[in-house]
Design a protein around this nucleic acid. Structure first.
Lengths: 201, 201
DNA sequence: CGGTTTGCGTGACCATGTCACAGACCGACT
DNA sequence: AGTCGGTCTGTGACATGGTCACGCAAACCG
């Protein structure tokens, strides 16, 4: 597979680094080699929502709009873990698109995934209730395990809601024995029930 | 500009035709030559929200995910006006991407626009109040004019809310002299005030 | 050990969404 | 004209979700 090739000199950045902010111009095309980038949107009220995550081998699409038609970013990107990334200058990007079928395939795959992510997100935010959204977020973050280390605040931004709302829902579930709750971490005592709630729309 | 070239035999379809539904497989790549396609998402409750519109010269991206990684549509596409479209079979699509720089530019432009649309939508649905969303929708649909022919129901799906909510907000504005309201149509009596509300986040 | 920061719980209140139903308007047909 | 059925709109009552204003407890740190 060409997809493991190096396209540009790798750069490492520590977790927590802000890669780009809303309204900023873009420097180049970002390819994630290792680590995860969290892309979020922040409203005027300060409330935040996670749009999607960019995984290794993936291509960050925020840069895309910039490069194609000069629109500045609307979102913010933060290194969720330590990262190794490559940055392609615009000319190199266009050359690769024209010449490299593998690069095109990766690019289009990334576009399709981001697009599906965004549709799912709109569906959830606009048409799905808090219990289902929160249950999905918990199961997603737990990733098969029974322990999740997050604050209510983080969960709230994950589902685009407010901390108080998350706290209330979690305490209901804790009383019902679905979860165990502690400062900064949660235990999923009854993941089956959570899955059920997550399905329910 | 190559963008006015014909890529495939044009097909005409009447307004109201459903081009694709959620969960369906895709037939090919749709390029809109004339008319507007409205792409919407429908929740289990039956509530609907407009994701974006595909304008002439534009490329419908719902087909994109299908062609690239086989994901079926999540959304539904309806001909909002009578349409003239072209449908590219997958092989032709891939050939054009590889060989035609103009086609690539159009494709990327469409991707960037759709992406910006979706981000705006998430921002509105998740972080923006009803008055601002509704005012924006009105101004957008009025398109500079002072008259809009829509039902409250349609406006509701435009902003991803419920008819009653729209009705209530509109009657407040009607009492305040910002709009005049009739069955199936609205007059924007004070567009400046609406613009103000639209800005307010 | 005190002080500070951060995370959590909670009640009151406002904004939105849902449900149920009534009335108004419109077109089609006698 | 009348009236009938369908669509559109108005409205009250209630459920859910978001905001604000707190107080308290756990972790952190000198």
């Amino acid at each position: 597979m060409r997809t493991t090739d190096t396209l540009a000199p790798p750069i490492t950045v520590p977790a927590g680094t802000v890669l780009f902010r809303a309204g900023q111009d873009c420097t180049g095309f970002v390819v994630v080699r290792d680590g995860v980038v969290r892309v979020t949107l922040t409203g005027e009220s300060g409330r935040e929502i996670v749009l999607y995550r960019v995984a290794p081998g993936d291509i960050c699409l925020q840069t895309f709009g910039c490069l194609v038609d000069g629109t500045p970013y609307a979102a913010q990107g933060v290194a969720e873990t330590a990262l190794t990334i490559e940055i392609l200058p615009p000319a190199r990007f266009h050359a690769l698109v024209a010449q490299d079928a593998d690069f095109r395939a990766r690019l289009f795959g990334a576009v399709a995934r981001r697009f599906a992510d965004m549709e799912r997100l709109v569906e959830e935010v606009a048409l799905t209730g808090i219990p289902a959204r929160l249950a999905r977020a918990l199961l997603r973050l737990a990733d098969g395990g029974a322990q999740v280390d997050v604050t209510h605040e983080t969960l709230a931004s994950e589902i685009g809601s407010a901390r108080e709302v998350v706290s209330r829902q979690l305490s209901v579930w804790a009383r019902g024995g679905l979860i165990e709750s502690g400062r900064g971490h949660l235990g999923l005592t009854n993941p089956a029930a959570l899955r059920q709630i997550a399905e329910a729309g």
